[in-house]
Design a protein around this nucleic acid. Sequence first.
DNA 1: GTTTTTGTTATTCAATTGTATAATAACTTG
DNA 2: CAAGTTATTATACAATTGAATAACAAAAAC
Lengths: 217, 217
Amino acid sequence: MTDQPPPSKSRRAFVREAPETRRAALIQAALELIGEAGYRSATTRAIAERAGVTLGLIRHHFHSKEDLISAAYDAHMSAMSDLSLAPAERKDLPPDQRLALVIEANLTPPVMSERNVTLWASFIAQIPNEPGIRTTHDRTYLSFRDRLEALIAETLSAQGRAVPADELRRLATSCNALIDGLWLEGGACPTGFAGDDLVAMGQDRIGVLLGVTLNRF
Amino acid sequence: MTDQPPPSKSRRAFVREAPETRRAALIQAALELIGEAGYRSATTRAIAERAGVTLGLIRHHFHSKEDLISAAYDAHMSAMSDLSLAPAERKDLPPDQRLALVIEANLTPPVMSERNVTLWASFIAQIPNEPGIRTTHDRTYLSFRDRLEALIAETLSAQGRAVPADELRRLATSCNALIDGLWLEGGACPTGFAGDDLVAMGQDRIGVLLGVTLNRF
DNA sequence: GTTTTTGTTATTCAATTGTATAATAACTTG
DNA sequence: CAAGTTATTATACAATTGAATAACAAAAAC
């Protein structure tokens, strides 16, 4: 069927792909490897093999391995933010229900997973080495908190409640911390919590912090 | 003053130390290096140099580098637990004040620091590689949560309130998550929060979750 | 004081890593 | 269809790594 037409001297057959395609494939390969077996397993050779290419392509499409890792961190955090904040855009739902869905998305797969905790920890641990990682971290963290803050403001406003800006900021920071902490516990101890236990806890406690009822939708 | 009596053939002078001393020195050296510049910088040679010995000693006092890293993680988590839970033992103080002090200890240096976040993330990222790391993580996590749960129970009980065991467990899990999340944010964004802002937030929000007043001691 | 023990140094080794360079071929352009 | 572009492969290289081994000496045992 798919017999390889032996080229002149047994050189591996290949297809030219668009740079964006190859970059995306290399990024995905790096994320898979780090998520599966940690940062150490993501060598240039392993990444290239996972992406179905040879080692040299990394240097061709990225300035260095460090550059690839930074790009992978950026892509991963963007994807996770989009996944967990997707319910916030559903304008057909009331804000309190959207908030409950955002919490649920954060505390269920695929956002909450052992793989993602490993990935996240691997990148955080690289902060002292690569300045690009810190920049991306700060940007994505503030972006998520701001969008969560907006959703909280909407929720409170819909109930006729108004809070000062600084108090709103503290509320968002605390709720963000609670979500992060539960996400971490669920991902690091995958067997420690039953079913939607963490989701119920998250919705319930954030409801208490905000003075609203979020669960039981 | 301290001229070295040149040994027979320019071999480095040394002093024999007790195994526990050397083990502790190597562990501390590893923790310093990982905390300063991440896991990658903690090579066997760098650890030995930091500890003031030569490379071969690691294999003499530990079965492997992996064994040293596991021991370092264990020692570090124990030290942090002791630091942050020390106020819980002060029987001269009422439980609500002890709880407030535990929260404060968790959200101020030396427990909350960029170095410690880097350290913690580095170890978590090693979980897929070394099974010993996961064991230590689960043990220290559950130990901290249990002791926090006991302190919460004491606090509520002192106010004449009793909660079912399962609800108490959820309360402890949520409070632990909130503390972890704030600790993480403070350590990862050292410039993002002013003074005791995080401490006030932690005490205030956990007070809300428990229905007690913890701040302003 | 002599012997024994073992903590410690010094050196070597095989494996792996990220990167660099040259050769090649797939696709594009005209 | 011919020439040019560049994505891709193949190979090499210098540096680093964790580990292994042998030589040595400091302290203990006798």
